[in-house]
Design a protein around this nucleic acid. Structure first.
Length: 480
RNA sequence: GCUCCCUUCGUCUAGAGGCCCAGGACAUAGCCCUCUCAAGGCUGUAACACGGGUUCGAAUCCCGUAGGGAGCGCCA
């Protein structure tokens, strides 16, 4: 992970766009984070720039390996490949320490000997007075070290003037420096804090466009002040709105705030998830379905909306099916195989799997659902749904099955056309509609009253299995 | 409480002063197609948060109000 010559020190083209996704592994990567990552990735791709992945793990207490794994695997599954990284902040502590030392020496930062208890007391008073809780500046103008107190380091924020954030999605936002207090950049144990690390990292890595959740908009002026103090160039900011749960409330575990990998398990296609997420807060005319290439070609961070949007599972489902129906069957085969394996079915017959995909994709919203609906193709014996049997195998049902069996057994070829012709001819002889013949066969062969067209179903199933199941259904019927 | 942000159909959105008694999509209702279920096609219900301005004219500009969100941490 550690490299001798970090790329940002060798490649330094100020003209190219550099974006980054900097998740913190304190919680699972969910759709909210993924969308921010997507916007950064898309923008870099669109501008022919670079996309960096950086893991913000400065909070060693709350960071977990599991969360890091989900970030890495999730990004890989989605195909949001980084041009650099992953970098880890915990491996850059020396660098942060050096910058802090430099700022201390320059008077841009200072030691603060106030204890947590003292500060909490001050905050309590301020809140009681209905004031904004803030650091009172006790140590700002120098203070003798206090025995037994390990000091923190605070950034000396300008007291006067204002900072204007020229945000790509919000426009200009002005903050008064008087509203900003001196934030802690190093804890008493010496470890640097988030707001400081991002600043150093984005600076070192040459990030030109900071695209992140709008919960960071309030942090931006302080970060800009630090960048200014360091003599660094300011990046362009774009604060994208957050995603709400389907109920309009904050994204919760109940819906949405689950690991992205959950969507893989549920049978969603990466392109469909990405397509869904890009349309949350962004649009390109009336277009709903986008391929990756189309997204890259049409995307611009400037077109992103300012308002938060609610996650809608139904539309994701619809889009997933749209992508399933537009994909080349062969590209879906690995997905189908994986889902079949989950339910204990192993099949490596490429032609059969492609045939099933073609037959099933317009009646399944996810690859998981497709696998579930296709079990009868592989099972040794089918369990016949009693309700379906009662409806279609009673009365003359069994007699119909016998006649179908005779026709199919003597059929010259085993194609959808041949099967279709035989069943239709039989229906005509019986003076009934195709349904009168197809439904009993469907129930006998699939166990249910629902399946792809009967000719397609039988063709895929094969003559041997078809006849065996017709026999089994007739035998079961006579026994009852 | 203070600071900042946000507000078009149930949901995602188009709309950058007249093209809008507001368009598309999901969902929903009905119809068509049809061997089942789907997919597909057609039709319908449904929105500019509210109040003032500016203007010949406002969803679009300005000011308020209300509601929602974020930040105010030795969390990120």
């Amino acid at each position: 992970m550690v490299r001798c010559a970090p790329p940002w020190q060798t490649i330094r083209d100020s003209m190219t766009v550099v974006t980054r996704f900097a998740p913190s592994p304190t919680g699972m990567l969910h759709v909210g984070g993924v969308r921010t990552a997507l916007f950064s990735w898309l923008y870099a791709r669109r501008m022919g720039g670079k996309f960096i992945l950086r893991v913000e793990d400065t909070d060693r207490e709350r960071s977990t390996d599991e969360a890091v794994r989900v970030i890495l695997d999730g990004m890989a599954w989605l195909g949001l490949t980084a041009d650099e990284g992953p970098y880890y902040q915990t491996q850059r502590f020396d660098r942060y320490g050096a910058v802090i030392g430099q700022m201390l020496a320059a008077g841009q930062a200072y030691h603060c000997y106030c204890t947590k208890e003292e500060l909490e007391a001050v905050r309590a008073e301020q809140t009681a007075r209905k004031e904004k809780p803030r650091y009172p500046g006790t140590c700002r103008h120098g203070r003798a070290p206090r025995p037994g107190v390990q000091p923190v380091v605070r950034f000396r924020n300008p007291a006067q003037g204002s900072v204007v954030v020229e945000d790509l999605v919000h426009g200009s936002v002005t903050f008064q420096n008087a509203e900003l207090d001196d934030l802690i950049i190093a804890r008493s144990d010496g470890t640097p804090t988030y707001n400081f690390c991002v600043v150093v990292d984005d600076w070192d890595m040459g990030v030109t466009h900071v695209i992140r959740g709008d919960d960071h908009l309030n942090n931006t002026p302080r970060q800009m002040n630090m960048l200014l103090a360091l003599g660094a160039a300011l990046p362009t900011y774009a604060h994208v709105p957050m995603i709400l749960g389907p109920d309009g409330a904050k994204l919760s575990k109940r819906h949405g705030a689950v690991s992205v990998l959950q969507y893989e398990e549920e049978g969603y296609l990466p392109d469909a998830l990405l397509n869904y997420l890009v349309r949350l807060g962004w649009a390109h005319g009336d277009q709903e379905v986008f391929t990756r290439e189309e997204m890259i070609a049409a995307f611009d961070i400037k077109d992103v909306n300012r308002a938060a949007s609610a996650f809608n599972p139904e539309k994701l489902l619809w889009l997933n099916q749209q992508h399933m129906m537009r994909a080349t069957p062969a590209t879906l085969v690995p997905h189908l195989r994986a889902q079949l394996r989950r339910i204990g079915l192993d099949c490596d017959d490429q032609a059969l799997l492609e045939g099933i995909i073609l037959a099933q994709r317009e009646r399944a919203k996810t690859m998981k659902e497709m696998a579930l609906n296709s079990r009868f193709f592989f099972a040794e014996h089918v369990e016949i749904d009693p309700k379906a049997a009662a409806k279609h195998l009673g009365g003359g049902g069994r007699e119909t099955l016998q006649r179908v069996r005779e026709r199919l057994a003597g059929l010259g070829g085993w194609s959808t056309e041949a099967i279709h012709g035989a069943l239709e001819a039989l229906a005509a002889e019986l003076g009934a509609g195709l349904g009168k013949v197809a439904q009993p066969v469907r129930v006998a062969v699939t166990g249910a009253a629902v399946s792809p067209p009967i000719d397609v179903t039988l063709a895929l199933l094969g003559r041997e299995r078809t006849l065996a199941r017709l026999d089994a259904a007739m035998a079961a019927g006579s026994g009852a």
